[in-house]
Amino acid sequence: MSLPDRIPILGWVWEDLLFLTFAGVMLGAALLVVIGRNIIRSGLWMILSFGALAGLYVLLGTPLVAAAQVLVYIGAISVLILFAIMLTQSKEGPSRLVFHHQAWAGALAAVALALLLALTVLGTEWPQADGQLRPSPSADIARLLFGEYLLAFEVVSVLLLAAVIGGVFLAKREDLPDPGEAAIEQVRLGSSPGGPTGYTSGGIGPSEADAARPSGGIGSTGAATTPGALGPSVGMSGRGDAP
């Protein structure tokens, strides 16, 4: 069974409906990212916004960019951001004051910018498109990328390498005592006052070791997460551009 050419009631072409849906979802999700109170929910809305944007790329006839969007943004950057959120989440929960004191100034600036852009867009004579969207085949893109734009490609790969190294260096904790050693140290400190009463120290010690070990483990995951989550995106930009 095939769909009719136009939507029955509204008389639109299907692409228009799809475009409006994706655009609406993207805008709404982006708004929710910005004004949402819970930052984890903001991250999840951001994923939805990226997904809708990938749909828009498909509608614009660039499936390669859409695939890259799904891989890089939904796959890598979202995971990275969610990990960072969980690592920096404090135990007290989200603070009550979500926005800055100068948030109203920021809102004003954003509205002014939107007005300015709207004026510019409306005032410009756009070259009229012929309405015919030609899909750009990925073989042509690859030929162009590895021919004319080879230098840019190499520069980007060097940049990604530098970002990986920089991320590892920054997220690594300096002169950290070994986590396991710290836990043992804590256990020894905790149990030495209770030395005379034999079995209470035996009861407390292991539980403190269990409490101390995750805290050490989380820090080292932070250092290990960053390059690991970027890994797919680096591999993608090397491999995904070369079909």
Binding site: T62, L64, V65, A68, Q69, V72, Y73, A76, I77, L80, I81, A84, L145, A152, F153, V156, L159, L160, A162, A163, V164, G166, G167, V168, F169, L170, A171, T226, L230, S233, V234, S237, D241
Partner: peptide
């Protein structure tokens, strides 16, 4: 667009670190 995406990935990594 692909180049911008790669640069954005690098920026996100360093920023989050």
């Amino acid at each position: 667009a692909l180049t911008v995406m790669a640069v954005a990935a690098a920026e996100a990594t360093v920023g989050l670190a």
